[in-house]
Design a protein around this nucleic acid. Sequence first.
RNA 1: GCCCCCGUAGCUCAAUGGAUAGAGCGACAGCCUUCUAAGCUGCAGGUUGUGGGUUCGAGUCCCGCCGGGGGCGCCA
Length: 606
Amino acid sequence: MFEKEQGLIEEKIKAYCDANGIALAPLKWTAIPFAGEWGIATSFFQTAADEARAGKGAGKPVPARAQEMAEQVKGQIGSVDGVSRVDAVKGYLNVYYKTSEYAHRVVDEVLASRTDFGRGAPKGERVMVEYAQPNTLHSFHIGHARNTILGETLARLTEFAGFETIRASYPGDLGLGVITVMWMYEKFYKGQEPQGVHERGQWLLKLYVEANVLLEKKENETPEETAQRESYEAERREMYRAYDAGDPSVRELWRVTREWALEELRDVLRILDVKMDVWFYESEVDEPSKAIVEELIQKGIADDERPQGGAVIVKIDEKLGLTKEKYRTNVILRRDGTTLYLTKDLALAKVKFETYHVDRSIYVVDVRQSLHLQQAFAILKLWGFPQADKCYHLGYGFVSLPEGAMSSRRGRVVLFKEVYDEAIKRALAVESERSGNIPEGERVKIAEQIGLGALVYSMLAVDNNKDIVFDINEALSFDGRTGPYIQNAHVRANSILRKAREARYELRDTGYGFDFELTKHEIELIEQISQFPVKVQQAANEYRPLVMAQYAYDLANAFHSFYHAVPVLQTEDENMKNARLGLVAAAKQTIANALRLLDIQAPDVM
RNA sequence: GCCCCCGUAGCUCAAUGGAUAGAGCGACAGCCUUCUAAGCUGCAGGUUGUGGGUUCGAGUCCCGCCGGGGGCGCCA
């Protein structure tokens, strides 16, 4: 927001260096890291070090020389519009803003842009974010929730930062797991169907777990048990074969059960306020992907070892001319002619590039699939897609339970829906304890927003590359560094504004100013608000939702401190009252914008 | 055997190579007749796993070691 002033100072620094024959290193600006004062800072360490290396430093230690430069620059700067003072400290040049002027500018900008405050200029690039890729028939657990929340937040960030953004889901609706549930249903539960979208979806998971018990080889099996198990196994294999052969009744069973699972998925996405633009289904990518295998053989990228009884493989390192093993070799078509995960991902990437004209392709996928995705990207590069360089795997650590890894197969999972229901229950309990002023008809809706806010924030507040051991009490905490803490800041800001309206106090847009002595709380809050556009860009460019999660907390924290220490409605002075109401409105708006990017609702009361 | 990630306060986690390594939880002490106490203020808590190296400057980069997790051609 203050590029002009920064530019002016930079010119002065450059002029000083030119006049003194100093080769200036690129200037890096940061916020002054001391609370209560507001401005920007840069240092001269790099320049001094460069000078010393060039043998021109006159033997002076670098820090001392940096400080000397900072002092001399300070002497040269004179007065700059909008700058109250300049300090040279420990090699740093600190430029302090005239807070009254900038405060007015920040508040004005927020109130003029409203929901668009912080939005970046269009970048002319199209991004696709692929996330929410659960297997159908397995129900949606808390690990899928981490994936979906990360993906959705990232999509909101890239979109708001100025990228045209496409959201893509890629459910796995094929494979042995799916067939296993179908077999179980057909054999033991045919004709049954629980009522309720989630009940039905969770029931499918129950069938899956039961089936795996029947199909798993046990220790000390009796011959009868072994025969029984092998007979089940044969039935399952037969169903898989029948599905592949296009058997109409098996296909119909597949279609019906798949729809049950997808209905549940769609409802989970509705709860999470995720609106997918594109659905890629594994079943629809499977057949076309076989064609690309031929293409890759033709182009000399893949080696066909089928004549020797092998598979179709890509020797990635060799084709890239690497001597050290990095991407290794991988199979893109089994010897029986069926496809693999990698095959389908290659075909899907081609569709993304050619049909959707994607410039950047982001995959939100478990970190354990890192090598596979690196292999896919490398093959895309060999294939001649320049977009391969802008494929990015946003890997995330897996979510486990205190008792160990989650396992759909064993039914050892925490389902998203269970946690969501519990979150609402807990939020309602807190509401009835301390929120007397919520209208009866809104209590559940607010509880949903708070409960989900807690859960979502707990997923975003940890860096994506870290594993999470899921603890429901931590995930659903409403105190401290949590979603509800940030939501509460929004509520409190709203409360002040509502009271002002109720008192028929009219907020004047103009004619007020921050030309009074600002408290450190006001300065800190204004500084935080002004940082929002920068944080949006940083989070989007680095593909790091955590940056925004961190920022939202810092902003809310600044507001809570301000709220506690600085009176607004009780302010005697009309001008000051106006200015502070404007600041509160700007803070509320910025908190709301930040929460929106985090896929968290911003309630007006709680 | 090779590759990737992690190791920071009692616990859970932050920190574009830069100023005094920061939050939350937990503990302790305060603050509700005053805009919502899901809050605020104060206090305590650190040899950033370890040994070297690079650098004016290292939690951050490089090498080794220790500890934990993950991955490595016909699973996804």
